[in-house]
Design a protein around this nucleic acid. Structure first.
Lengths: 165, 165
DNA sequence: TTGATTGTTCGGTATAAACTAAACAAACGA
DNA sequence: TCGTTTGTTTAGTTTATACCGAACAATCAA
């Protein structure tokens, strides 16, 4: 008589899971598509919903992650420019909160990622000797990217102006 | 006297690695940032540099992947709209090539991914009862996204018009 | 200094993903 | 019908990554 542990079959749906918790989980999963660890996504979502900065312990505690994971993933988020570390006077702890111009920052991140991709293509366009057809294909690809990039950065600039800090 | 296998320390740098091979590898790595398997990236890069459509065997052979991986990853790329499967008359094999309007398609992919993210935020904006400050933050985030999305889709539409097929 | 608090790093484990080989299915030609 | 060619699926292996607990380092207070 073998018994399957229920925790394997399916996790217990936490009875006191609030709407906010669900939001956090869903956003965390969605952010995995951007190559972030799930815990990083949870932390980000948590901070997104919190007005004031939160300490590492609280982050670890309320996301259910270990302090180690919280430490690592806050750094990841910080390096990606999604959150920032702030210090409060007369307090040794670090506190974290989302950056103010969040959307612009995320878009800048994405642009930077694309840039790496297109840099490779452009480099190939220089070094490789390919047929005129292929060359035309690559050139057109880059042209279109460039035009879209310009439009996009202009739009972001407008966002920046509208909300300077 | 322990000897470290050189293949572990570092892979042999293939002496007859062409510039095209390097291009393929670099692009493949860059595409991993978009959540694609490395082999998918290699296949894409390979097709990008080839004028005419290529069969599965050739793809497998020239990327060094197994036929199974080639099959799986071509399907991934096809579903993402980056390549297309074509059939040649009097030939049972499937052939693959990049789609014609490549840049627009990649951007559409990216937009779709963002859409999922923002859908969650908007949903949260409806269901969650958060402080006015947080609500303002989320709303602003979505507003900025929406404005940028409009600009972007317009720019893509222009690309589409400029090169209809 | 010592003790307490806070963050990071390290070692090990579990989970997930990529990939291959081999079995399988489907489509065609003989 | 039977063998051949082509693509897919499956099972198992390898590889990479996330994660935790515990040890460690650093900072400040006493």
């Amino acid at each position: 008589m073998t018994v399957l542990k229920p925790s394997i079959a399916r996790r217990k749906p936490d009875p006191k899971a609030t709407a906010a918790d669900e939001f956090v989980e869903r956003l965390a999963v969605a952010m995995e598509a951007d190559g972030l660890p799930r815990i990083a996504g949870r932390i980000f979502a948590l901070l997104l919903l919190n007005e004031d900065a939160i300490s590492l312990d609280v982050i670890a505690e309320s996301t259910g992650a270990s302090k180690a994971s919280a430490s690592v993933n806050t750094r990841v988020l910080e390096q990606r420019g999604l959150i920032e570390r702030v210090s409060l006077q007369g307090d040794r702890r670090d506190y974290y909160r989302t950056v103010s111009n969040l959307f612009v920052r995320t878009m800048e991140q994405r642009l930077a990622k694309w840039q790496r991709f297109h840099a490779i293509v452009n480099d190939g366009l220089e070094r490789l000797d390919v047929s005129p057809v292929i060359r035309g294909r690559l050139k057109n690809f880059e042209m279109e990217y460039e035009s879209v990039r310009e439009v996009l950065t202009a739009a972001l600039e407008r966002c920046r102006v509208r909300r300077p800090r």
